[in-house]
Design a protein around this nucleic acid. Structure first.
Lengths: 341, 341
DNA sequence: AGTTAGCACTCACTATGATAGAGTGCTAAT
DNA sequence: ATTAGCACTCTATCATAGTGAGTGCTAACT
């Protein structure tokens, strides 16, 4: 059961118009602005049908129509014309990301987030590579002074973590080197999830004489790897004030409060395998974003999908623009990450 | 020229009441709620005097009085009874900061920021130690793979910075060690500001054969030290919605936009030598915070003042509570930083 | 002289009702 | 199947009046 050609055209016109104006769309507007050669009365009939089918809603009897979540979904799946970035936008994106080539991944991610929020004019979020999905590439222990050792872990997802470890007693260089080598030997190429008691016991066994030192190092190191799976970077949080749906102080407050809860956000933006995903209103599992839409894409380091970049805003989102820009930025980001890491 | 005893009492009552209720305070309220044994008419006369002297303002003729910036200033300087944290608050603060002892400074700062915003119920900001004011304690170059070296810098202000450096060619361990030692020899105990061309030239001279490698390392290292002087951590940005002065969507928007501009914030919260400082409304140099008040305190690592912690909110701020809590948290933070670093 | 009761006055805030305008659904004609 | 016409609905806006909090001033009181 699909909509007829004309209903599709009308639905698209309504969604486009509503996205542009934020006002309920009336039959006259459609007839005049989107010259269709049929009268407003005919359009009214079609609109009544579309409402009955669940694609449109009416705020009150004498108002125009507004797309429902289902309407937006149909629009995104079948009607949308994706807008590529304008030449200016494209060159801005390229130049900012290009410049980031020399930087490390944290820096690239921060820039990307800012860029995404500026070009789309919505709130942008980027998840840094998940540590859980990463394998350890190198562990280095560096003595910074008599009792302090800095452990630096580099993963195959380009994440660099450091943690300061306080030792119970002074330690000589050879011992540190020995421990360092052993940690690398046993842990290299393991993912964080693969590190378990048996691996740790192996290390303790092989370096039986250094129990005290290892007992200071390993738990702290382990905790710091396990505790934070990924960071989330946000930019453009005040962009929502550009959109009239957030002129209501409570709506704005709820939205911004949501942005303060990092765990919820990470949950919302976490990857679920799809390369590009649009979640509209109530489609979101999370109740708190039931009047928001989220568009997100995954990005890769090496050949592995490791994180996501995305945008959150009202369901009345300019999907065609956001999807175009998000694709473009994700592609460019992937190029850079492929070449640099 | 000082106010008389009675005027002082009335001014204090008005400020206290306004801070509590956010409503202009009338003469009857003062007479009844703050039992003074004088009639509302007498209080009206005193209030008219206080207004003439600039301590009070009237939103409109038939409204009560509201403190002016000058009124708040007088209140903070001469009338305030600083409220110490409640036992519950004190023990919460102690337990959260105590737990942070094992962590490194970034982590401690993040926790402190969150804590400060939760206990005061305003927006909290903490400036991490200024790198410019720091001296380098140790520099370590760590090979993470064939062409990548990670430079780790530890300062005497407990800041740890790392930067990934791409090398033009493979480098052997001994060379790296040599460069590493030279960097430490020449740069250790210098502040970032003291690092200039002459120092760098010295290094280049002494390691003449390694120009290509040094040319990859030094500029990147130098940039990463110079580029970011300090970070600012924010928490409780949506706390402002608790206060009716931000029920106006534009006020809220302006405030939150301000919080997105990190440079402005750093400027606002930067230390100016005073241990505890209250800036009220127009007293702030920065125009954008002319209807905000800021309370901030400095904190130390070792014996050196390195950063500030503070709170920003409406001029109708609960100064007595905020000052009490801020002092308490700053003292506790200093204890921890003194003992750990 | 300082204090206070009394009172007229001001001004924001809150209904209330009237009006305009946008948009609909239905009916009857095309 | 389409459309012109029209009654109907509902919101948004505006003016009006009434209410109440709070003031400033005056005159009386201590």
């Amino acid at each position: 059961m699909d909509l007829g050609e004309r209903k599709r055209y009308i639905l698209k016109a309504i969604v486009d118009d509503y996205i542009e104006t934020a006002e309920p769309v009336g039959s006259r507007t459609i007839a005049k602005k989107y010259e269709m050669g049929i009268s407003s009365a005919t359009i009214r009939n079609e609109m009544a049908d579309l409402e009955e089918l669940g694609y449109l809603e009416q705020p009150h009897t004498s108002a125009g129509r507004v797309p429902s979540d289902k309407g937006y979904r149909y629009y995104v799946d079948k009607l949308i014309n994706i807008k590529d970035p304008t030449p200016e936008e494209a060159s801005e994106i390229k130049s900012i990301l290009q410049f980031a080539t020399i930087c490390e991944i944290d820096n690239i991610i921060k820039r990307t987030t800012k860029l995404l929020s500026e070009v789309t004019r919505y709130t942008a979020a980027v998840l840094s590579p998940s540590v859980k999905k990463s394998a350890l590439k190198s562990i280095q222990l560096v003595q910074v002074n008599d009792y302090d050792v800095l452990a630096i872990v580099v993963t195959d997802t380009a994440v660099i973590k450091h943690v300061l470890i306080k030792l119970p007693r002074r330690i000589d260089y050879d011992t540190l080197l020995k421990i360092n080598n052993m940690l690398n030997e046993k842990l290299r190429n393991l993912t964080v999830e693969q590190i378990d008691l048996s691996v740790i016991n192996q290390i303790l066994m092989e370096l039986r004489g250094y129990y005290e030192i290892l007992n200071a190092i390993i738990p702290v190191l382990y905790d710091s790897l396990k505790s934070v799976d990924c960071d989330i970077y946000l930019e453009g949080t005040t962009n929502i004030f550009k959109y009239p749906e957030y002129n209501d102080i409570n709506k704005a407050k709820n939205f911004l409060s949501l942005l303060e809860r990092k765990e919820t956000l990470i949950d919302i933006f976490s990857d679920d395998g799809e390369n590009l995903k649009v979640s509209i209103g109530r489609e979101n599992n999370n109740d708190e974003v039931r009047d928001c839409s989220i568009v997100r894409a995954s990005y890769m380091v090496g050949n592995k999908v490791v994180g996501t970049i995305g945008v959150i805003g009202p369901t009345r989102m300019d999907y065609s623009k956001v999807i175009g820009i998000l694709k473009f930025i994700a592609d460019n980001l992937n190029d850079i990450l492929r070449n640099s890491f």
